[in-house]
């Protein structure tokens, strides 16, 4: 018996993998059913559904980039402190001093790439008409995921706490000031006046809720950090699970009937 065979016949190996090596047809089916990670997939599918020229693999690439962002993001969290005192210096150290500071580059370029691939995924799904029944709801979930991807990127944009970051977020969040009714420079904000007191001020409007302050400051850094590292990723994870589950339940990847 070769070493490989010995290992594959050991009790430990067999306890981890509930199936023999997928070398013959039967075990290639069994592996898809019994492996936790693989069971997201069907056992078999139409050839057309795995053709790269049809799917562009953009949904898969987006999910993979999400995993890359999660791993590099968790590692970066060991270095980075979201405070006015340290945020910029920690990024500076990542660039100049820290070994594996390249994690920041991976994280940033992965994020840009993810925004692009999620658009391309939507583009492909639209162009193949794959949102049509029975996949309407999964398209809706996908639109929310696209929005959350943009918000993930937007909240992360602030964290380096340099000029690029603070002003991009300032420009972006200034819009919230003009929210109808809820922004203090928005149309119809006078509607929320109770007994002569204007309820919507620059310290209580939609922008304040977003920033946690009247301007982009330490409260904002903390708020965006928590949203970026915990809040939005949790929401994305849940919706991703639904998104994948619905792909299977709605009949697998789309194709002509």
């Amino acid at each position: 018996m070769s070493l490989g065979e010995t290992i594959r016949n050991s009790q430990i190996w067999k306890s981890v993998f509930r199936h023999p090596m997928p070398l013959d047809r039967r075990n290639r089916i069994v592996v898809m059913l019994t492996n936790f990670f693989l069971h997201l997939h069907p056992v078999s599918m139409k050839k057309q559904g795995i053709a790269l020229s049809y799917t562009w693999c953009m949904g898969g690439v987006t999910f993979f980039l999400f995993l890359v962002e999660t791993v590099t993001g968790v590692l970066l969290m060991f270095y980075y402190r979201p405070t006015l005192e340290w945020a910029y210096n920690d990024i500076l150290a990542l660039r100049d001093v820290t070994s594996l500071g390249i994690l920041r580059e991976l994280h940033r370029w992965g994020a840009h790439a993810m925004v692009i691939t999620v658009w391309l995924h939507m583009y492909r799904v639209f162009l193949t008409g794959s949102y049509k029944p029975p996949r309407e709801f999964n398209w809706v979930v996908g639109v929310i995921l696209l929005l959350l991807t943009l918000l993930l990127s937007f909240t992360g944009y602030l964290l380096p706490w340099d000029q690029l970051a603070i002003w991009a977020i300032t420009v972006g969040s200034n819009m919230a000031r003009a929210t109808p009714i809820l922004g203090y420079e928005g149309p119809l904000q006078q509607l929320l006046t109770v007994e002569g007191i204007d309820m919507i001020s620059d310290a209580s409007d939609a922008r304040f809720g977003l920033l946690g302050a009247r301007f982009v400051g330490e409260e904002t850094l903390n708020r965006f950090y928590v949203l970026h590292c915990v809040g939005i990723p949790l929401a994305v994870s849940l919706l991703l699970a639904i998104h994948f589950w619905r792909v299977r339940k709605d009949g697998g990847i789309s194709g002509p009937l």
Partner: peptide
């Protein structure tokens, strides 16, 4: 043309 590729293939190994 997508209709022509109706043949079923196993996900392991083709897709994986």
């Amino acid at each position: 043309a997508e209709k022509d590729d109706n043949e079923k293939v196993l996900v392991w190994p083709d897709l994986v």
